[in-house]
Amino acid sequence: MRVLVQPEPFDAAALLDGFGAGAGAVVTFTGLVRADDGLVALELEHYPGMTEAALTQHAQAAMDRFALTDALVVHRHGRIAAGEPIMMVATAAPHRRAAFDAADFLMDWLKSRAPFWKREIGPEGPRGWVAAKAEDEAALDRW
């Protein structure tokens, strides 16, 4: 299991090299910064220490609940340009259903329980903080 919190771009191919060796299924999800409404970048603030702890806790919960053989969570902070990857999760399991479900579970938890806060940057400069969505909070009820 591996958790990375970093400002730099990540190399997905390098991180996935050898990931899940021996498993029957690997699922990866990569989130990109959408260029909605002329957005040029997102700026992510995080809580050093707690962020790593929360991601580790959720990754471990996914490992236990879905009997994964491995899990990877990478999440960036700082300024991230539109179109760039902002985060990635990867899950490995003996069969595909557990790998898919675990990735979905991890994403739902990361959305509203990992201490990150997004601010939109437009061509004119910083816009407001992104508000949490009720649907993201409600998604946790699925689990």
Partner: peptide, 10 residues
């Protein structure tokens, strides 16, 4: 003790 808005990761 930390105070913050609802989180918006992912």
């Amino acid at each position: 003790v930390a105070f913050f808005p609802p989180m918006t990761g992912g």
